[in-house]
């Protein structure tokens, strides 16, 4: 075996003119975090809406929500990334499409965040739906019987509990979005795995590059895990064991 192990390479200047290699990785880590967080914000918003939609007593809305979740869950993320990057702008009116392609700032970042957001939203929606359905039916009925409107019932009774119940399953979805963001290297997002590839290509320090990037991902996963555990403790519903499934 002929493995190069020169940890000093991290301090060496990269030939891309972007500073030393550690800085390349640092830039990559920042893009990974930015993409994951932006995508997550979108996923929470859309996922909650779709999740609620699927539990509503209006058939067309519930069907629409189900259809969205099924479409997104049954097409690979990579294909969806390509779709949003290459196909989508062609379907838009020409001017808007051109803006999307040329003038939109950070096109690969925005596309990746959007694609990841839509993708993860389907998973969030699934959790939100099962969170809502896991509540005792009596609560919703009681609220309606007390004269609450349906929106009031959701806002004041169902959702505050459902959101606390879904925090544990959402932890793994939150971790997934960090991991899934790596697929965005295929559309040229200069995230962490992209930078590892660059570093391997330019420096040829395979082991060092891999070890450094793997460590960064593990630190991220650990941080997310701890953060969500803290949130889970804070939001536990009194009287329920563990507050979830």
């Amino acid at each position: 075996m002929d493995l190069n192990l020169d940890w000093g390479v991290l301090l060496q200047e990269s030939p891309t003119g972007d500073g030393p290699y550690w800085q390349l990785l640092w830039t990559g880590a920042k893009w990974t975090v930015a993409t994951a967080l932006t995508g997550w914000a979108l996923a929470l918003l859309v996922g909650s809406i779709v999740g609620v939609m699927r539990t509503l007593p209006y058939k067309p809305l519930a069907w629409l929500g189900d259809a969205y979740v099924e479409v997104v869950r049954n097409i690979p993320l990579l294909v969806q990334l390509f779709f949003w990057f290459f196909v989508w702008p062609e379907l838009l009116p020409r001017e808007i499409g051109l803006w999307y392609k040329q003038d939109m700032p950070y096109p690969e970042f925005i596309t990746a965040a959007l694609a990841l957001g839509w993708f993860t939203a389907a998973r969030v929606a699934e959790q939100v739906k099962s969170g809502i359905l896991s509540l005792p039916r009596g609560q919703k009925n009681a609220a309606l019987a007390l004269g609450f409107t349906l929106p009031q019932t959701y806002r004041l009774v169902v959702l505050p509990q459902a959101f606390r119940i879904v925090i544990p399953p959402l932890t793994s979805e939150f971790m997934n979005i960090f991991k899934n963001s790596a697929a965005a290297l295929a559309i040229g997002l200069t995230e962490l795995t992209f930078q590892m590839k660059q570093m391997v290509e330019y420096s040829n320090e395979v082991i060092v590059s891999i070890a450094a990037v793997t460590t960064i991902y593990m630190v991220m996963a650990f941080a997310v895990n701890r953060g969500m555990a803290w949130l889970e403790r804070k939001s536990r519903i009194p009287g329920m064991i563990g507050g979830g499934r």
Partner: peptide, 23 residues
């Protein structure tokens, strides 16, 4: 825990670059 905290894309690259090094 190791495999569950890193992206599959990264793992694909690990083995892509490393497997041949192991003979």
């Amino acid at each position: 825990n190791l495999f569950r905290s890193v992206p599959l894309v990264l793992v694909i690259f690990w083995f892509y670059f490393l497997i041949p090094y192991f003979g």
